[in-house]
Design a protein around this nucleic acid. Sequence first.
DNA 1: TCTATCACTTC
DNA 2: TGAAGTGATAG
Length: 530
Amino acid sequence: MANGGDQFGLAERPDSDCMDSPKETKQENQSYALNSPASPQTASSQQGMEGIKVFLHDRELWTKFDEVGTEMIITKAGRRMFPSYKVKVTGLNPKTKYILLMDIVPADDHRYKFADNKWSITGKAEPAMPGRLYVHPDSPATGAHWSRQLVSFQKLKLTNNHLDPFGHIILNSMHKYQPRLHIVKADENNGFGSKNTAFCTHVFSETAFIAVTSYQNHKITQLKIENNPFAKGFRGSDDNELHRMAKLQGKDYPVVPRSTVRQRACSAGSPFSGEVQGLRGSPEAAASPYSCENGLNSSSPQELLSAPPAHYSLPHPHLQHGQPLQVYHCTKRKVEENCSSGNRQHSYKKPFTGSSPSEGESYYHPSSYPPPPPPSLSNNPALGLTDSPYSSDMGQRQACMFAGSEPRLDELNCAPWSYTCPLPSAMTPMEPYPPYTTHPPYSSSPQGSRLSAIVHQSSPPLGEPIAHDPYQNQSSGPPPQSSQNIHSRQLSPPLREYPRYTPNLSPPLYHTLETHTHIRCGVPEWSAAS
DNA sequence: TCTATCACTTC
DNA sequence: TGAAGTGATAG
């Protein structure tokens, strides 16, 4: 791959302030574990999170895009990502319930432009959009469930509508982002956010992308057309395309598609070759994700919530491309801790690039950094996910989104975010986030805190040190470890719906959790997990 | 840059 | 069969 990371200008890697440098953190294969220095408790706190490994599905395809400089269309109505974000997860306790969710955080604080066939920085990023979390519709579900098959986030949609009422992830056009996967151990209520919530975060640098309202690089257009079934109609090696175009234009004669022309013109070099090259860092690393494990948060989930989004703030977190992020464990620390130090900011900056680990390697992320952490889960009922994961209606289940206000890293802090769970049906429109404010008001609400943290963190996280996971990256194959045993799914106990979310969480909640998130009351079956 | 609309596709 | 996801296109 190209230089991965550079394409989009991400050259820098996060430093380690907060986190240990990748190297340090990196632990070989297994590393994800938690040993993050930061967390003292790693062992215990991380309760079972340490052996979790995540493999990006279709890594090769992601890598192809990454090498060119992945672009994702964002529309007012919401657009799916392609390639789709799908992962294979192993190392989960079959009986323990987990909540899988994603967030997409700013990869740096720049605004990009595509000119001269390449991406370049054109200024400072706009304020981050409200951070939102996309909770996988099957959540909460047992480790057996998640391990059994690929976990797909293909229904996740991206939008540029700051007031989006559907719970889609809100992004700014011409800005670079990094998707992150968070695996959170469900609490007694099948939610997350409680104090001892354990979670880990995985980042695949090759999934970084620049959000656009229309494709800038024709190479990306071509890759999308070639690989996305829904774009099949545009594949036209034959005359089909010309005929189609002619038809569209109402002409009898073949017309050369504009795109074709344009593409040709551009195709010459890789766009990103320029300074800003790719999102990704080293090609090699591509597959691996890095994760940061957070073992547990001691702090209540809420704390997490409260954490601010980090994005911008961070100095550039550029992730390294290619590198796997591994999990950072933020373990137990309180948010404050996480957030606090100023230094941390820099941490992000440093890209993991440095030595990007080879594919195989993974870096361990210390969780320390404030936010990187995952989603905060909240105790809130709201956040609680109730349902039975397996319920037949899964289809119906919708993913929940949690929104935060802004994820800013800057502050590193702990500003709280709001999250929402939008459900299409049930969603309540939430309020928009406070527009770009930096700190959301919500900050510290207990309830939301953790989530927000995650959310926020999300942003920041990128910068954070990430661990690379060697394994993870392996695109395909997950290591054997995953236990395939499938435990029967436990149905969840009766669900409880939660009352809508209240203000405490974060103000902007976009949505009600109700739907998705119902929380259940006691069902401790999984408790054993750790 | 962004949006609405189009024809085409998958599901 | 219709809903929904695609990139292309014009404005």
